[in-house]
């Protein structure tokens, strides 16, 4: 049950690239069509709902919910944004993932040297994570 993932294509490279369902750019065009249809569907639903739903304004409807009592203070009150350290670490590790994916795809062709380099790269970042743990940055109070 072996199926060829990509059937052989004998057209020129440029034609292949711009062919709509399967070509390199053609695939992004398809994604674009998908996105446009999706957004149109969502907006269509919202607009249609706007036509059929009732609109009965009343003053108390427009207050925010605060367990049944009148809201105290503003909704955008000062909040302790604890996760900014997590966000910093996130940037580091997300960039790491960006480097890992291309390496993983061509791993077999690059061989041992690339592997050792990647071990060093990951080790540095793993050490950084360990440092963050020791500094108790990752404790959520």
């Amino acid at each position: 049950m072996v199926h060829p993932a990509h059937p052989p294509d004998l057209s020129t490279t440029q034609e292949r690239c711009y062919k709509v369902p399967d070509g390199y750019f053609g695939q992004y065009v398809t994604i674009g069509i998908f996105a446009v249809v999706g957004v149109a569907l969502v907006f269509g639903t919202l607009s249609l709902a706007k036509l059929v739903r009732p609109n009965v304004p009343a003053k108390d409807k427009y207050t925010t919910y605060e367990s049944g009592i009148d809201p105290i203070g503003r909704g955008w009150s000062q909040t302790n944004v604890r996760y900014y350290l997590f966000a910093l670490l996130f940037v580091v590790f997300d960039v790491e993932a960006v480097f890992l994916f291309p390496w993983a795809v061509v791993f077999e062709r690059l061989g041992t040297q690339a592997f050792i380099e990647m071990v060093i790269f990951i080790a540095i970042l793993a050490f950084a994570l360990l440092y963050a743990v020791k500094k108790k940055v990752l404790e959520w109070l």
């Binding site: 925010t64 605060e66 909704g75 604890r82």
Partner: peptide, 19 residues
Amino acid sequence: SGSKYPLLGAIRSSAQLIS
């Protein structure tokens, strides 16, 4: 939303999702 519960939910959510 300009409300307190949704704001707390959003803060939790962003920390959880990025992790």
